[in-house]
Design a protein around this nucleic acid. Structure first.
Lengths: 238, 238
DNA sequence: CGTTTCCAAAAGTATTACATATACTTTTTG
DNA sequence: CAAAAAGTATATGTAATACTTTTGGAAACG
């Protein structure tokens, strides 16, 4: 995805530094400052700044300069902002927020999928779920995450709501992070229940049982939420 | 919000034309085409295109040109994309999707607000709710919408989740549209119940009753959803 | 028929000059 | 002396242009 252009490098660098709170909100730059720091032309810099402006990380005004905007203004649904935040200090808060959002949306997505999804999608969902459940302890994480992402993306797509589908990108950003976190800190047998819930949800969708699907996804996400909290708790203990 | 710059005009024009499906996905432009059409410099055009690229409406590649991306790629959470879609032909679908998302999120937001919100926010919520409920038939729409937007924004803010808060911008975009639609097509007395539900939800949040708050907001959004469907049904009848 | 080479096309980058809006200062004015 | 008007400096906004780099596709080649 990341195009091999210097503009994207500058964008990434500035974006991350802002999200990392290296500059207080309200802090003002002149574009010249960045030009010299990165040794790029005004053209390249301005194109990067325009993107950051469209993400509401900064505001550009004549005779004033580039102002760093407060966090409340940010387009926190932009996948790049998500990624930057997952790299920054408030990673934990970001994961918590994202999981809370998933807890709100995915059960409803499951409900809708159970009543609207195409048969082929229902079957595919069940396939990914069983793949997840049957994966043993020695299964490589790579493959596990792939199925996990595929399951949740398909679920959101099958909901028939393009806004839900768009959220799958955010889920895809956060899933590997939560996956590794859980894997590194939680004993294996404790992760079995959520995996099983994938299958229950998928089966409910295949059966067209909207309520059961919603319930299973809700339990699954509650489980994820608890595992996240537990993982961070153990971390701070060590 | 719209800055008084040519670049923003070009951005708006191209963005809207893409969202309106005036060009099929996969259609390829050269930046020169747009330059002549809008009679602007390459600088201005490219800055607009960069923003559109960051919204995933287009993709710019060397030796290829500017490709219009399919709808599934779009950053549908960007407020500008929302606005363009509300202006375009699939306005109805967009409203339905947004309401469905609200139906997923706002009840959870209410639940969280009931257990986390600051006292001052709880009181303010109740204030806006009673203002809404007490507004008579002759109350000007302007003022009604202002209170409505304020209520929902505050609710999402009080949830303590910055992703929920960010959604308030989308709600603010869609609320006036649904508001006018309902007002123009539904008899006044039928809009009373949802208004009352605002107060019930707010009161539950003041009382710290998470379950009641969630339930009230869910009923409210279901009501909104039904009114939307009804409004469009009546429209197509005429 | 597949592979490599090469070219042209389109975006990517850089430089420079000028336009324009606007925060700030100075002057005028009542 | 304060408030309004005028003026000025400054940083972004816009334009024009030249050059660089990547890369799809045609042409040459084995």
């Amino acid at each position: 995805m990341a195009r091999n252009t210097i503009q994207s490098g500058v964008l990434d660098s500035i974006g991350l530094s802002i999200v990392e709170q290296r500059y207080p909100p309200g802090h003002v730059f002149r574009s010249e400052d960045w030009e010299t720091e990165f040794d790029v032309s005004r053209t390249v810099l301005r194109e990067a700044l325009k993107v950051l402006e469209s993400m509401r990380l900064i505001s550009m005004r004549r005779k004033v300069g580039i102002t760093v905007l407060p966090e409340t203004q940010w387009n926190v649904f932009d996948p790049r902002v998500i990624r930057w935040r997952l790299l920054s200090a408030d990673r934990q808060r970001q994961i918590h927020s994202l999981t809370e959002l998933r807890l709100a949306v995915e059960p409803v997505a499951a409900r809708n999928a159970a009543s609207r999804a195409a048969s082929v999608d229902r079957v595919a969902l069940l396939y990914h779920a069983t793949q997840l459940e049957n994966a043993g302890v020695e299964a490589d994480l790579e493959r596990l995450h792939h199925n996990d992402v595929a399951f949740h993306r398909l679920l959101l797509a099958a909901s028939g709501n393009e806004l839900f589908l768009a959220l799958s990108e955010l889920v895809a950003e956060v899933l590997p992070v939560t996956g590794h976190l859980v894997h590194d800190t939680i004993p294996e047998q404790q992760t079995a229940p959520p995996r099983h819930l994938h299958t229950i949800a998928a089966q409910a969708i295949v059966d067209g049982d909207a309520t059961a699907a919603e319930q299973a996804m809700r339990e699954l996400l509650v489980e994820v939420q608890e595992q996240m909290d537990l993982a961070y708790q153990r971390r701070s203990d060590s």
